[in-house]
Amino acid sequence: MAKQKWNDLSGGQKGAIIAAAAVDAGLRVWAGRDLATRPKDEVNGPKWLWGTGLSLVNSMGLLPGLYLVFGRRRTALD
């Protein structure tokens, strides 16, 4: 499959890409803020590893989603 240039994409394709990028950015901000403010004993795994992954790995929202579902320990308030 040949790469398409941005100008060759339809309006719907451009919109889908922008929407996916916005969702990914929102999830990254949410997960990063949660990780930064959560005590290390409430995080499953090392905080530095989650932080590095959230900062460097482009996972199309998968890694932030994994952190939000599996990376946080449940507290009495959750």
Rank of each mutant, 00 (worst) to 15 (best):
residue 33 R to F: 01
residue 3 K to Y: 14
residue 27 L to G: 05
residue 69 V to M: 11
residue 61 G to S: 07
residue 42 E to L: 13
residue 44 N to H: 11
residue 31 A to V: 04
residue 66 L to Q: 12
residue 21 A to P: 00
residue 62 L to N: 12
residue 69 V to W: 12
residue 20 A to W: 13
residue 66 L to R: 07
residue 31 A to D: 00
residue 25 A to N: 09
residue 77 L to N: 07
residue 11 G to F: 04
residue 4 Q to G: 09
residue 39 P to C: 09
residue 23 V to I: 11
residue 23 V to D: 11
residue 62 L to F: 13
residue 32 G to R: 02
residue 42 E to I: 03
residue 15 G to V: 05
residue 12 G to S: 05
residue 23 V to E: 10
residue 51 G to T: 05
residue 19 A to C: 05
residue 3 K to S: 08
residue 16 A to T: 08
residue 73 R to Q: 08
residue 61 G to D: 00
residue 41 D to I: 10
residue 4 Q to Y: 10
residue 19 A to K: 15
residue 23 V to R: 12
residue 24 D to W: 03
residue 78 D to E: 10
residue 39 P to A: 06
residue 76 A to L: 08
residue 9 L to H: 02
residue 70 F to A: 12
residue 64 P to I: 06
residue 18 I to W: 02
residue 31 A to G: 05
residue 46 P to V: 10
residue 33 R to D: 15
residue 13 Q to C: 10
residue 25 A to L: 08
residue 4 Q to I: 11
residue 66 L to Y: 10
residue 12 G to F: 03
residue 19 A to N: 14
residue 51 G to K: 05
residue 33 R to K: 10
residue 32 G to L: 00
residue 65 G to I: 07
residue 17 I to S: 09
residue 42 E to G: 01
residue 31 A to F: 00
residue 56 L to W: 04
residue 30 W to L: 13
residue 74 R to S: 12
residue 55 S to L: 14
residue 5 K to G: 08
residue 53 G to W: 01
residue 51 G to H: 04
residue 70 F to N: 07
residue 17 I to A: 07
residue 44 N to R: 13
residue 1 M to N: 07
residue 22 A to E: 14
residue 50 W to M: 03
residue 57 V to E: 10
residue 8 D to T: 05
residue 68 L to F: 04
residue 32 G to Q: 02
residue 48 W to K: 08
residue 44 N to L: 15
residue 19 A to Q: 10
residue 49 L to Y: 15
residue 30 W to S: 08
residue 53 G to Q: 03
residue 34 D to R: 10
residue 28 R to I: 11
residue 73 R to C: 03
residue 35 L to Y: 01
residue 45 G to E: 01
residue 13 Q to D: 08
residue 8 D to Y: 11
residue 14 K to F: 08
residue 63 L to K: 02
residue 62 L to K: 09
residue 19 A to L: 13
residue 61 G to H: 01
residue 71 G to N: 02
residue 44 N to A: 15
residue 36 A to R: 09
residue 62 L to A: 11
residue 11 G to I: 07
residue 63 L to Q: 01
residue 73 R to Y: 08
residue 58 N to H: 09
residue 25 A to C: 02
residue 10 S to T: 15
residue 52 T to G: 13
residue 25 A to T: 09
residue 71 G to T: 00
residue 75 T to A: 07
residue 16 A to M: 13
residue 67 Y to E: 04
residue 46 P to R: 13
residue 23 V to P: 00
residue 24 D to N: 09
residue 30 W to R: 12
residue 52 T to H: 11
residue 10 S to L: 11
residue 65 G to C: 13
residue 27 L to C: 12
residue 15 G to M: 09
residue 57 V to G: 03
residue 65 G to T: 08
residue 32 G to V: 01
residue 24 D to M: 01
residue 13 Q to K: 15
residue 41 D to L: 08
residue 2 A to Q: 06
residue 34 D to G: 04
residue 68 L to A: 09
residue 52 T to L: 11
residue 64 P to Y: 00
residue 8 D to P: 04
residue 77 L to H: 08
residue 40 K to C: 08
residue 15 G to L: 13
residue 51 G to N: 14
residue 44 N to S: 15
residue 9 L to V: 07
residue 47 K to W: 10
residue 31 A to L: 02
residue 53 G to P: 03
residue 71 G to H: 04
residue 59 S to W: 04
